[in-house]
Amino acid sequence: MFSKNKIKSLLSRPEFSALAIFIFLIVVFTFVNERFLNSRNFMVILSTYPELALVALGITILMISGEFDLSVGSVFAVSPIVTMILIADYELHYIVSILLGLLAAAFIGFVNAIVTVKFKIPSFIATLGMLFMARSIAVVISGGFPPSVPKDLPTDWLVGRVDMLRVSIFWLIGIALICNYILKKTNFGSWIYATGENKEAAKDLGINTFWVKTTCFIICSVLAGFAGIIQSFRIKTVITSLGQGLELQAIASAVVGGASLMGGIGSAFGALIGTFLLLIIDNILILSRIDGNWFKFAVGALIVIAVILNTLTKNSADKIRLKDDD
């Protein structure tokens, strides 16, 4: 039914193991808990999914370019706070406010890029510093109490309900398709992979790696900021702790989805699958009534298993390829 080449191609895809675990868990839990595979449960999962997946998508693109960003959780708070201050205190139009909120995120991404690339500081350190600075900015500009989301603010175009889904899922699909197109079909996408795989070789090929990385940092921050705005519109509140700890969850989603911490590997689809898998794991543990004290252990263990399987499938794909080469 499947040719060897097709199997090899499937196995070598970075998101394959996450997809396999995802399908496995869905099948098993459909039998274990009758309320798992029902529309109401997936409606619950899908309500937060676009927000987390957008952050994971940005992190994945950045990781493919060989860097990563620990400040996304703080940017997730800064953008909606800036937006809401502009709407509530300065009475700017909400679209202008959102664009300025995203501009603030882009600026943070730009600073991350400059510190990382120009000053040759590892992105882990540079963005760790920004994690603290951006969170502090969020508290300072709001005085610790960000303004309330106005009741009459039009939010349906971003988070309104369409039957079982929210509009934000369509924004995610659109953005993910654009990212996938950029990564797979454009020169810029090839430059991102080349920069992440071997920066020096990419430079020798004439690729402006500074520009590539800077753009990836900005994309990552803007997506995190946009996700924060979506969440604040959905839950109709902005608090300064929004997105706290999100950076680790986003990196875990990207890695589970097949992105390599070493750069050069990953896909937009993988980020979506990785995020969904982590949400499914969370959901399964809640439905299984796992004791609160064991919850984080179970989440951590399942993430490690997912990454181990990822590595094993990648190794299997490599072996098949080597045999073919012989």
């Binding site: 619950v44 999962i45 937060t48 702790s241 997105g243 700890g245 809640i286 609160g292 919850f295 984080k296």
Partner: peptide
């Protein structure tokens, strides 16, 4: 373990009560 984030906590509560 309901978490320390309004969004995460909300989702966990809803997942639980629908189950």
């Amino acid at each position: 373990d309901s978490g320390l984030d309004t969004s995460v906590t909300g989702q966990r509560i809803c997942a639980y009560v629908q189950g």
